[in-house]
């Protein structure tokens, strides 16, 4: 598989632990603070990925994953 493809198969080594840490990051935060924390996390991860094509694919994935309400 070319490196510039977003990996969408399940890859997290510890999904529950990861989710718990993520949720804890938001514990007790106001919506505004949560938004800031999420943004920081996103930027850290994006920089780690680095690959522009992969990041754009991730953005597209989220764009097309419309919420159902």
């Amino acid at each position: 598989m070319p490196e510039t493809t977003l990996q969408t198969e399940p890859r997290l080594q510890e999904p529950d632990l990861f989710y718990k840490s993520l949720a804890q990051l938001h514990a007790g935060l106001t919506p505004e603070e949560s938004l800031l924390v999420n943004s920081k996390l996103l930027l850290v991860l994006a920089n780690h990925i680095g690959d522009h094509q992969v990041l754009l694919q991730a953005i597209d994935l989220v764009k097309s994953n419309v919420s159902t309400d």
Binding site: E32, L35, S39, K40, L43, V44
Partner: peptide, 24 residues
């Protein structure tokens, strides 16, 4: 929007300590 403001402020807060955020 509030989301865009949060993104912007996240860049600025990270940039103080972390060089990777500065190009943004």
């Amino acid at each position: 929007t509030p989301g865009q403001l949060a993104l912007r402020n996240a860049v600025l807060e990270l940039a103080r300590e972390h060089e990777f955020a500065r190009p943004l």
